[in-house]
Simulated scan of single mutants.
Amino acid sequence: MNKEESKKLLIEELGIHFENEYSLPPLAARIFASLVITEEEGLTFDDCLIKRGASKSSISTSLNLLLQMNFIKYFTKSGDRRRYFKIAEKDAFFVEKLNKTLKKLEDESEMIEKVAAFNKTYNAEKHQANKEKKKIYMKCLEDTKAIYKKTIVNLKNLEQ
């Protein structure tokens, strides 16, 4: 398999991953994958149009969605009126993704505590039956949150 065939296959696999991971429409996921994989400094609207073979309105809609989600940004070159699209700063993207997951973990911890408090007050038997399970689960959540926080700090330190 040559480089271009490998690249097309990787873009397709990465596109499917982005569809599932970020609930992106297929075209937006493939454009994002193309931007992740490209060796070029950035891709123009026309580059995306040629590479994806979709309509101008579909490409435009997908690029605007990716811009709104802060997955990509654009820049211009002196003397060139075209916009060039590239992925947002990689470290910032990773930190944002980790922060979203951390928020979900914190929300989960809060809800588990509320359910436990309710059961302790109104259903002592259920509270007692689930006490050890809750303890183990909460320890897992706390350990995971600590790892995420440490990773975020490490990524931010790389930026400096």
Rank of each mutant, 00 (worst) to 15 (best):
R83Q: 12
N119T: 06
I147T: 15
L27M: 05
K77L: 09
S23G: 05
A146S: 15
F18V: 02
Q160F: 14
E132Y: 06
T61P: 02
A92L: 14
D47Q: 04
L158H: 09
D143P: 04
K100L: 10
N157V: 11
L9V: 13
N119D: 11
I50Y: 09
F45Y: 07
K97E: 11
L65K: 04
G15F: 02
P26R: 04
F85P: 00
K86T: 07
F118H: 13
A88V: 05
E132V: 12
K3G: 05
S62N: 03
S6M: 13
K90F: 08
A29Y: 01
K97L: 14
I72Y: 00
I136F: 09
E96A: 11
A54L: 09
R82D: 05
V115I: 14
I136L: 11
N2Y: 06
G42S: 03
V115N: 09
N20V: 07
E5D: 12
E39A: 06
S58L: 11
F93W: 06
K8G: 06
L102E: 07
L66P: 00
I31A: 00
K145Y: 05
N70H: 00
G42T: 02
S6C: 10
K8Q: 13
N20W: 08
K90G: 10
N2F: 08
P25Y: 05
S58R: 13
E110H: 15
K100R: 15
K135H: 09
K104P: 03
E125Y: 09
I16F: 12
K133M: 10
Y137P: 04
A146C: 14
I147H: 15
K139V: 06
K114N: 10
S109K: 15
T44V: 03
Q160V: 15
I152C: 03
I16R: 13
R30Y: 02
V95D: 00
Q128P: 03
I72K: 00
A88Q: 15
R30F: 02
I87K: 01
F71G: 00
F118W: 14
K8H: 10
G15L: 04
L158E: 13
N154D: 13
C48I: 04
S23F: 05
R82I: 03
I11W: 01
R81F: 08
T38R: 01
V153K: 09
L10T: 12
E159P: 06
A33F: 03
M69D: 05
K114V: 05
N130V: 07
A129C: 06
